[in-house]
Nucleic acid binder design. Structure first.
Lengths: 160, 160
DNA sequence: CCGTAATTGTTAACCTGGTTAACGTTTATA
DNA sequence: TATAAACGTTAACCAGGTTAACAATTACGG
């Protein structure tokens, strides 16, 4: 318990709650998230896809004719929040809203050719981005991290 | 490679970019962050401390007379962004801005007695919150996660 | 059948958590 | 001593959501 003289008073005042912020997983999670988010944006360029647009496009490419509601559910956001994302992707010509025969409520989302091309390019950029941000971690550590994050999602994530 | 008939076309269309969103660390990191953030808020009550206010107060308690600039630097945000946070904490009577003799530019932040009490209570709530969200992880896994997140911060985090 | 409930997409208003740019004050430095 | 730099602050803005309401449509119980 070697403490410097100058921080003696600090130690006293915090003694009843000796919690270093840096020991909190939530705090470190947030800081790491900010790093990823920031680097993602600069990796994909100033008018490239945002994280959320990339996620949405990813699912639309891989699940053709997915419904907006289903997409929102998968992304863990509200339907209303998805509208702006889909608006943006449609404005860029990366996907199309299509009415589906049989249910005139839903909008079936389908990626365009340009959308699939843009997604492929984005995937490359995202891979480089992750490689850069995770440079300090071994492959085993990355797999571990992925597994731990997913475990949090499955146990604490309310995916009704 | 057993694929259902209905997803055959999906597989074809995504073949050039066979990246499942769920395999991306960045995506899982964001989802986990959202889980923590959401649970933090409901754990600390409707007019309890926010994540950022808690972080700020934590450092003010443990580093008496820290400067606003220094605090912002530690939290990884801009000085301007910290003003509202400190305003809020001061309005709640949890800390005080104090002029320091020798440099009339700086605001030295000092937690009040109420601030230290509120912090101690918040720490208990935060501990319960982390315990809840991390219930699916063993102690070893939690230590691993913490270590991995910090490794990201130290290697990729631009702490000039 | 028919009325009621549920679902879908959408808009509007709002909130959180920041950023950048500018400014006055004060201190450091060439 | 002039110029630069640092501090706290404000204003304007932005990203990424949320909640509440709504019209259109579909599902369902009686």
């Amino acid at each position: 318990m070697a403490r410097s003289v100058t921080s003696l008073r600090a130690a006293e005042e915090a003694e009843c709650a000796d919690l270093a912020l840096e020991e909190l997983i939530g705090y470190n999670l947030k800081r790491a998230y900010v790093i990823f988010h920031t680097d993602f944006r600069e990796a994909l360029g100033d008018d490239g896809l945002s994280q959320r647009a990339f996620s949405a496009l990813s699912l639309v490419v891989q699940i053709p004719n997915i419904t907006q509601s289903a997409l929102a559910r998968r992304l863990g956001i509200e339907r209303s929040g998805l509208v702006a994302i889909v608006d943006d992707l449609e404005r860029r010509g990366l996907l199309q809203r299509g009415r589906v025969p049989g249910d005139r409520r839903v909008q079936a989302l389908l990626a365009t050719d340009a959308g699939r091309r843009a997604f492929a390019e984005a995937v490359a950029a995202v891979r480089t981005h992750e490689e850069k941000v995770l440079a300090g971690l071994s492959m085993a550590e990355r797999a571990q991290l992925l597994s731990l994050l997913r475990k949090i999602r499955t146990t604490a994530g309310g995916e009704s």
